[in-house]
């Protein structure tokens, strides 16, 4: 059983290092995520892990605690709707709008093991006849190096590739390798992965036509959410589109965005963005 001091310590550590604003009701999450880490690192209990992180200057162990808590579930084409909007509304608009530069830049923030950026890459590869010779780059970032390593490898289990991935895409974009399934190298080349903490100043990462930042803001407190959303506004092109998670909202937060795509849309444009190209 995790001690109240350990709970307080880990919650503060997470808030400071990753912006993750959990409260004590998420004690079970600390236990389910940190008990395996304690065992793996040779500590008798989660409380011993707490003592070790608190009393030593072991930044690697500290990072492992943050990693264990921030690794989030993901799947190919998670929630489907954003990918349909991406394919049917946002990309057709960008094809007209970026006709001269023939360039599209996409950022998936908090991309975990890569299913989201690769889902976008698959949709774009399927539309390649409509955009021959276009320069398309997708950036996937996450705070956890371990998930980025898996994302770069592009190797997924049978369970992973059954979660949301249409079978025609499995046949077209994957090769079987023993018990696993490996993405083909053309698709992998469309996505670059980098480590990024959303709490840091990320204005250096460039400008994007589309940002996917889904199912991460829910873990932030209002102030952090406001800061991160403001910074995302700063790296989004004037006509750009921001996609949030199904249960996330910008209501009640001072932010530079307006909602687009109707009630089910859940995507946003910058306030004052130019109208879609017809």
């Amino acid at each position: 059983m995790i001690s109240p001091e350990a709970v307080q310590f880990f919650l503060m550590l997470l808030r400071k290092e990753s912006g993750l604003a959990l409260d004590e009701s998420k004690k079970y999450l600390l236990e389910t995520r940190l008990e395996p880490l304690a065992a793996q690192e040779g500590y008798a209990s989660i409380n011993d892990l707490y003592m070790a992180v608190r009393n030593t200057n072991n930044s690697l162990l500290r990072q492992e605690v943050v990693d264990a808590m921030t690794t989030n579930e993901t799947s190919f084409f998670r929630d489907r709707m954003p990918f349909d909007i991406f394919k049917n509304e946002v990309i057709p608009d960008l094809i007209k709008r970026n006709e001269r530069s023939r360039r599209i830049r996409i950022w998936c923030a908090a991309c975990s093991t890569g299913q989201e950026p690769y889902s976008l890459a698959m949709e774009l590869a399927s539309m390649s006849a409509k955009m021959p010779g276009w320069n398309i780059k997708i950036l996937g970032t996450d705070i956890t190096e371990a998930v980025l390593k898996k994302a770069r490898e592009g190797t997924y289990s049978q369970h992973d590739i059954q979660r949301g991935l249409p079978t025609p895409y499995l046949i077209r974009f994957f090769k079987q390798s023993g018990m696993n399934w490996v993405l083909n190298s053309d698709l992998k080349r469309m996505v670059e992965f980098k480590r990024l903490n959303l709490l840091s100043n990320f204005s250096w990462i460039g400008q994007f036509d589309i940002v996917f930042c889904r199912n991460i803001l829910i873990y932030f407190d209002v102030e952090t959410k406001k800061t991160v959303i403001g910074r995302i506004g700063g790296v989004l092109a004037p006509h750009g589109a921001l996609f949030l998670g199904g249960s996330e909202t910008l209501l009640g937060i001072d932010n530079p965005f307006v909602r687009a795509g109707g009630m089910k849309g859940k995507y946003y444009h910058l306030n004052g963005a130019p109208a879609p190209v017809r």
């Binding site: 084409f77 489907r80 049978q158 369970h159 059954q162 979660r163 949301g164």
Partner: peptide
Amino acid sequence: IMKPFTKEILEEKLGI
């Protein structure tokens, strides 16, 4: 769908 499957896999495949 490849067995073994989960409820999530079943729901997502039908969703497709």
